[in-house]
Simulated assay, not measured.
Amino acid sequence: MRSPSLIAVAGPPGTGKTTWITEQLQNIACPTFYFSPGLGPISVDLARINYTFPAVQIITGDRGNSWLTNVPPEAVVYCELGFHLDLNSAQFGPLPYRRVGVLPPSLKDSEWHGWADEIITGNDLSPTNPESLPNLWRSPLTGIVFDPPSLEMILTELTGGAYGELQRLKGIFEMPDGRAFYIDFVQGLTGIEYTELPLEPWLEGRPQRFSGIELAGWNLNQKLIADTLLEGCLADEILTHYQQQYKNFNPLEEAISG
């Protein structure tokens, strides 16, 4: 009996595992699933893929491999393994799967090299703490809408080391004009990437769709980070004012009158 095509993707943080997977999802022609064990409900990656590729079925929670019994044989399953997971743990049970390592070209020998069937060249990272894995910190931001200048200042401080040494930042942030952005930073690469997500503008109260932040680094002051993020949140009355402005704005009328 034919089995689904199972593809496990692993590598250090920031090398581009999720990016490689999203490239494969651009033109899907069969039932496709995305699974990343150990993430739990606070997952920027799960939400980003769900928002960007609504046809992809997201597998949430730590279900072991029992959910695979309901996957059609013609399906493709992408399993993203976080750097904190044991590569030898059985994610697919006895089923065969392809192992893809997304690795920086400067990394010549690692556990990922011995594990992978195929090596994909990812971002060329030179971590300042190569001997120790970074710590992870995640926080939901659902319902929080940011003042853009305040968010830019917070991100500049975070990536500049004001709250500890940051290796990776990824997050989904809501703006007062109703748009949501995926924001990505990797230590050693240039700048902070902002990508608007293909979602309907949320202009009625606080957004009830998932947003959140995920950080990987060393000696991160988690409480100060959380307090600073809350300080950048728009109060209810200011948010209502902004939303009313954007709802009343008609670009066509503005162009004609201008």
Rank of each mutant, 00 (worst) to 15 (best):
R168C: 06
F181K: 05
P198Q: 05
N129W: 10
Q208I: 06
G93K: 12
Q208E: 12
R99H: 03
A55R: 15
Y246H: 14
D177K: 13
G101Y: 00
L103P: 02
S132A: 11
R206G: 02
T52P: 08
G122T: 04
R2V: 08
N70L: 09
P140M: 04
D45A: 12
Y194P: 02
L239V: 05
V77G: 01
T190F: 15
E254P: 10
L85T: 12
H241A: 12
G82L: 00
P94N: 10
V100W: 00
C233N: 13
W112H: 07
N50C: 08
L166R: 10
P176D: 07
G16W: 12
E253K: 14
L230S: 10
Q24T: 07
I119A: 01
G258I: 10
F210P: 01
C233L: 05
A162P: 06
S89R: 14
G16P: 12
L39E: 14
I183D: 08
E152I: 05
F173K: 00
S126Y: 14
T52S: 14
A75L: 05
I225A: 03
R179E: 07
A29R: 15
Q24Y: 09
L85Q: 15
E254D: 14
L234N: 04
G161K: 10
Q57F: 01
G143I: 08
A8F: 00
G161L: 07
D109N: 14
S36Y: 01
Q167R: 13
I192C: 03
P176A: 09
D147M: 07
T240F: 11
L199Y: 07
D227Q: 15
L169S: 06
R48T: 08
V77K: 01
L166W: 12
S5G: 11
E214R: 09
L239K: 04
D236C: 06
Q24I: 03
Q167I: 08
T18D: 07
I172K: 06
P37C: 08
E23S: 14
Y78A: 03
N70W: 06
A29G: 09
N219C: 10
V71Q: 04
S257D: 10
L155C: 07
T240S: 12
R209F: 08
N70A: 12
R98G: 00
L136F: 13
S36R: 13
